[in-house]
Structure formats: structure tokens, C-alpha cells
Design a protein around this nucleic acid. Structure first.
Lengths: 195, 195
DNA sequence: CCTAAAACGGCACGATCGGTCACTTTTTGT
DNA sequence: ACAAAAAGTGACCGATCGTGCCGTTTTAGG
């Protein structure tokens, strides 16, 4: 069972790719099947339903996100440099790495925030976990560590700048988005880092 | 031709309502027609196509947004109080006024940022105009007025906090979103307001 | 009130949707 | 090499999609 896993991976990847562009609701089995060179019914040998396929694609999207944004920072010591690395890679993630359709997670977040179900649950769980990771890093900005409340506030702003950058870049086609986001984040780190 | 205009308005309103929840791509003529008590073909006496209907709904959404968020602030003198009013009403807009499906504009922004066409064009144009309005207000925060660059940076952060609040509230079900957004915005105004 | 126009319903169209079933081909473990 | 299991195909199903056509009802202007 080796060939199967490879095909399954290709399906998942392609599903995520299309969902980032058109949204999960607009991905059709036909389009995915055609893109990976399969028949529609062939997809059902790997997933029992379309939702299971989308679920796998979303989960895989998170894994790819963590690998791209977080792992390079892991070798750095906790502190400002580490957070700056994460932020910079995060900007790259929406702007460069996924130039085609942008960040799958952000697209899914606004698409599914009103539709209960396993997709929203998965999103919620993994986004929360990611925020916790960031909050932990924020606390390490000062010695003694800043309070939980302050750290969460900083994470809120950090994520906000990412969202702002995404809109400014992808919807408004404004190439100044990156500079604006970076300036705002640097200012945030300055304020948070000093007593 | 009075009855027609009323029906048309109801169609537009309902289309926007559903699009805020399910996304524009997932609104079907059947659902809209049923919700307003019409037949599917009856819709075509008011719009030549589904896209024309969605276009009208999006445009109307912007009008409603301006009326709700901006107009109450218009009576206030330019400056900090005015901006705080706008921000507070903006939070209400996503959290209270459109409790069902959230802000139509934000939903459409992430849904359509990768799909060229009249919908995206309309979005781009009106969002840009709104940002200009905000930038003008930001400049009035200090005397002499702050630079264009600084004002646009402040607008970027303001909009970012709105986006952050939206995710924290609607996806993560975190009722602390409002407090986090308000704190971040107040801090922004403090920094921007003083020389 | 009367008539023209506007508003609307019924019906059917081709296309596409997610999904099933029976069947054939390919891969895998021994 | 061989058999079992996995991978993949094609035809087809009922439902729904956006849309055009034609007849009927309702509304509005003189």
C-alpha cells in the first residue's frame, strides 16, 4: 500500500490548493479528480466522502503551515529574534509560498466561522493551539516574563497584522502591505519588550 | 412601479444576509427566492443574472455599513472621539448588528480576493475609498496633521484590529475579543495622537 | 374603469453536483 | 509466480444549479 498513499497525498494537496483559491464550498470532486489525473469515483477509494477529503486537506494545510512558519524559528533561542522570524515567514507564507490562492487557513477561517461542523471544530482547535504557542513565545520577551493577559494581547495584535497584511496585499494589491505590517509588528515588540 | 422596487430591495437584502453566512458562491437562487416568497424565475424580472444580483447585494452592503458605522460619527468633530466612535460602531457591526453571519464585506473580501471580476473590482474600489476616509480622520489627530504615511500606517493597524476581532469573536468564540481590540486601538490612538 | 405594462409562476433545458455499483487493472505480500 | 487486496474506471442516479420561455396575475397611469 505505497502507491495509494502517494495518490492520497496528491489528492489532499490539490484539494487544499483549490480550496485556497475558490473556497472549500466551491471545490468539486470533478475538478480535483481531473487535476490529479483520476476519475471521480477513484477519489472515493481514498476518502469516504467529500467532507473527509476536505478535512484531510485542512489538517494537512496546518501541518504545512507549521513546517514553513514555525520550524525554521525553532533553532533560534526564545525571544525577539525568534518572533521576528516567525512573523517574517508568516508574511512569506501568504505572499510567496502560496502566491496562487493565499493562505488556506485564513480563507477557511472566514468561510467556515458561521458553519458548525467538524471543519470548524478542527480550525478552532488548531488556531487556538497556534495562539498558545505564540503566547508562550511572547512571554519570553522580558525577564521576568510578562503576564498571560499581556501576552495574549500581543498575540492578538500580531495575528491582526497578519490579517491586515493579507487583505492589503491580496485584495487591494498594495505592495506596501509588507512594510506596513513589519513596522506595526516592530513597534509592538518594542513596547512589549521593555518594562 | 413601486411594488417592484420594494421586492427588489427585499431580494437584495436577503441575498446579502445569506452571502454573509454561506458566502456568495454558495447562495442559490432557489434559497433566495424561497426566503423572499418568490419563484426562481421571478427573480429574473429584477436582475438579469445571478451575478448582477450579488453585485447589488454587495453594493447595498457597503451602503448599510457606511450608514451604521460612519454616519453616527459624522456629527462629532474630527479627532479622537470621532475615531473611537467609528471603531466602536465597527465592532458592533460585526458582533451585534450582523450577529447572524458577520460582516458581509469581510466575508466577501477573503472569498473574492483571488477571483477577478466585477465583484472583486467593486470590493476593491469601496474598501479603498473607506480607507481614504479613515486616513483623513487619522490626520486630524494631531496639529499640525500627521504625515500621509503615518496616517496610512495607523489605518492599517485599525483595520487589522477589526479583522483580528472578527476572527477571535466569530471563529474562536472568544468574548474577550472586544476588550483586546479596544485596548489595542486605544494604544494606537495614544501613540499616534501625541508628538 | 380600462388598458398597457410590470410583476410573477410553471415548466423544462442542459450542466453539474456528490455519491454508488459492478467491473477491470494494477500493485503488493508471500 | 500467484493469489489476494488495493487502486482505478465508466456508467449511472437523484438532486440541484443558473437560466430562458410563455402564459397568467397584478399593478399603475390616464
Amino acid at each position: 500500500m505505497k502507491k495509494g498513499e502517494a495518490t492520497r497525498a496528491r489528492i489532499i494537496e490539490e484539494t487544499g490548493r483549490q480550496a485556497a483559491i475558490k473556497g472549500f464550498g466551491a471545490v468539486s470532486l470533478n475538478d480535483v479528480a481531473e487535476a490529479v489525473g483520476l476519475s471521480k469515483s477513484g477519489l472515493f477509494k481514498h476518502f469516504e466522502s467529500k467532507e473527509a477529503m476536505e478535512l484531510a486537506a485542512l489538517d494537512r494545510g496546518f501541518d504545512r503551515f507549521v513546517a514553513f512558519v514555525w520550524e525554521p524559528a525553532e533553532s533560534l533561542p526564545p525571544g525577539r529574534a525568534r518572533l521576528e522570524s516567525v512573523f517574517e515567514r508568516w508574511l512569506d507564507w501568504t505572499e510567496v509560498e502560496n502566491a496562487a490562492g493565499g493562505c488556506l487557513i485564513m480563507a477557511a477561517s472566514t468561510e467556515l466561522d458561521d458553519q458548525p461542523g467538524p471543519m470548524r471544530d478542527l480550525l478552532q482547535a488548531r488556531v487556538r493551539r497556534w495562539r498558545q504557542t505564540l503566547a508562550r513565545e511572547m512571554k519570553a520577551l522580558r525577564e521576568p516574563p510578562i503576564s498571560d493577559a499581556e501576552a495574549q494581547g500581543a498575540v492578538f495584535q500580531m495575528k491582526s497584522f497578519i490579517l491586515g497584511h493579507n487583505e492589503m496585499r491580496r485584495l487591494l494589491d498594495d505592495t506596501g502591505a509588507r512594510a506596513a505590517a513589519r513596522a506595526a509588528f516592530d513597534s509592538l515588540l518594542d513596547r512589549t519588550g521593555k518594562a
